[in-house]
Amino acid sequence: MKKMLVASFDMEVGGVERSLISMLNNFDYENYSIDLMLYSHTGEFMDLLPNQPELLSELQAYKTFRMSIGQIFKSGRLPVGIARLLAKYKASLDQSSENGYKQMQYMWKYSLPFLPKLEGNYDVAISYLWPHYFVADKVKAKTKIAWIHTDFSTVETDVEMDLNMWNKYEYIVAVSEECRNAFINKYPTLAMKVKVIENITSPDIVRTLANETIDNPMARDQRFKIITVARLSHAKGIDQAVKALRLLKDRGYQDIAWYVVGYGGDENLVKELIFENSLQDNFILLGKKTNPYPFIKACDLYVQPSRYEGKAVTVGEAQILAKPVLITNYPTAKSQVDDGHDGCICDLSPEGIANGIEILYNNEPLRNTLSKFCKSESYNNNAELEKLYQLT
């Protein structure tokens, strides 16, 4: 039996975390013994973890990555606090609009000397969430595998610094072909290492959870209901969704309600946009939900207004529930939706989103065709795990 480590941050509500749960639920435990390393044992999805993996004890130094700098100093971890301050300062020298990725890189780089190694030896170690410095530098394993869920053409990173880290891995797993292509365009010397393994989906679990009885305001809403399940962040484009709904109202579409399940750092920005555009009754934030599927089941249309994605887990889950889907034309969109068959792709702008919704709102036969196609697909892709086993 092979001994494997899987490492990630925590189990807060999110698509990456849901895909990790699906992978662990479908793993071959007859041939693999899995240790699960979470930097923080927090998040609503903790209760959804299967029993087979051995959940390792927290290493307190790693919990600091979810703390503010002030909290780190109060906890007495002065070297890590100073490393975080240095990372923040260095990232601030970069004037690009999205320097959060670089700040996270520097945070790990400067903190590494003060972080403990993980005891033990593994046959395989998987780092499931970028940045991958923990498994690269603090774990002993014969084979190391890093997972990428992000379209790297859209994020600013310190390439030279990342290359040092990536070169400590035998394999890099991308969740879609387009995600792989974007990555190797940025890091061409790593092309031979990069393999594609799609997010594991569990259609039976999604359909079962969708039938759970909950207090669902969407079930009582007689309007045309759109839903998005996503973090409230720049990447997910919820601000674009608000502007798109304003455009639709200005075109005379008064009976559209857009619900969003999710939370995140842009919540205040989104609330301000909703207020500025007088959409309090039409654009409804439902907040964090452990089980988003009854809400998806109650919608007339699922919309993903993202600026970029690796491969959006929630879009696949909406398709499992046979919902018509509209996604923006982010660089990896065509790996997610076959336009006109199992969903539609619109221009990546508020106007593009509004136009796409308008077409689907007025074309019920098209919505039915998309739903029918999704019903005919199984969406069971457990065979993807065979690709992982072959790497180990």
Rank of each mutant, 00 (worst) to 15 (best):
P188K: 11
P203K: 05
D158W: 06
V159F: 03
L232A: 11
N211P: 01
A141G: 03
I227M: 08
Q222V: 04
E156F: 12
I205H: 05
A235W: 02
T201R: 05
P131C: 11
D204R: 11
V196Q: 02
L112W: 13
N185P: 06
F134W: 13
N167V: 06
N121W: 09
K109N: 02
A136T: 11
Y133F: 12
P188F: 05
Y169D: 03
I238F: 00
N181F: 05
K109F: 11
V159D: 15
L232F: 01
N211H: 09
P203L: 08
A141V: 10
I197L: 13
S111L: 09
V229H: 02
K168A: 00
V196C: 03
F134Y: 14
V229Q: 04
R220K: 10
I148C: 07
S176Y: 04
L163K: 11
D239R: 10
S111T: 13
K138T: 13
E156I: 10
F114I: 12
T189S: 10
A219S: 13
S233A: 14
V139M: 04
A182F: 06
F114T: 10
E212R: 11
P131Y: 14
K186A: 05
T228R: 04
A141H: 05
M192T: 15
T208K: 15
N216V: 02
I214N: 10
K193D: 04
P113S: 06
